[in-house]
Structures are given as structure tokens and as C-alpha cells.
């Protein structure tokens, strides 16, 4: 359930290094806990964030939740398909449900994130 090749946060975001950019999304666990997503407030391209800044807000029928920046960086692209189909996150959180891509991101920040094994262990402990 926890894909290899990605890194994770305790707030249930995932990141994947793709060339010079970093792809960001929320985990299967996060989408399951939130339930059917109804709205995604996509970050604006060019927005610069520090680690733990609010990057996006995702809403379900019941609640709104922040998506935090796993590391510092600048938004290079946002997944505009989510504007009309937020359910893509429920369907495929690690694939077509990606939220945004960061450029000029903090490579040192990557060291603070969880490995798949650590995230699996973290989920088991909560």
C-alpha cells in the first residue's frame, strides 16, 4: 500500500523526485481518512513556500484540511484536472491525483522526510 521510491511526511503528504522537480501529493491513508474529496484549492504557479507552509487545501463533504509543503520550494505546476475532478485523489493518490510540482526545492529538506518503511511504521503506531 505504501509505494517504494517516494518519501513521506507525518502529515501524510508524499513526494517523488522527477528530474529537477519534486512532485507532491497526499497519501492513500490521507484520502481514505478524508473521504470523497469535493474541492482542491490548487496552489498558484510561482508561489514560493517554506517547509510546513500551507500549499493547498483539500475539502471533503465533511471537512477542509491543509496540505503542507513537505520541503521549501516554488510551485512549478499544479494538477489542474483536480479543479473539476478532485476524486482523482481518491482514485489514484500516487498517480493522477498528484497535487503540484515544486522547482528550486530544498534538497536538504528531503533528509527530514520518512522512507516508505518509516512511514509504514508511523502509520502502524498511530
Amino acid at each position: 500500500m505504501i509505494p517504494e521510491g517516494l518519501q513521506y511526511t507525518k502529515d501524510h503528504e508524499w513526494v517523488r523526485v522527477d528530474g529537477a522537480e519534486l512532485v507532491v501529493g497526499i497519501t492513500h491513508h490521507a484520502q481514505e481518512a478524508l473521504g470523497d474529496l469535493t474541492f482542491v484549492d490548487l496552489p498558484k504557479v510561482g508561489k514560493t513556500v517554506k517547509a510546513h507552509d500551507s500549499l493547498s487545501v483539500v475539502e471533503s463533504h465533511k471537512a477542509a484540511s491543509d496540505v503542507y509543503a513537505p520541503v521549501a520550494g516554488t510551485v512549478a505546476a499544479a494538477n489542474s484536472a483536480l479543479a473539476t475532478e478532485p476524486e482523482r485523489i481518491n482514485r489514484d493518490p500516487y498517480g493522477e491525483g498528484w497535487i503540484c510540482r515544486l522547482k528550486d526545492w530544498d534538497r536538504n529538506g528531503l533528509k527530514t522526510l520518512l522512507t516508505p518503511a518509516q512511514y509504514t511504521q508511523f502509520l502502524a503506531s498511530t
Partner: peptide
């Protein structure tokens, strides 16, 4: 119960 399969469904 708030949901079984999901609110949307």
C-alpha cells in the same frame, strides 16, 4: 454511521 462505502456513492 457517517458513511459505509462513501458519501458520494
Amino acid at each position: 454511521p457517517v458513511q459505509y462505502e462513501g458519501i458520494q456513492a
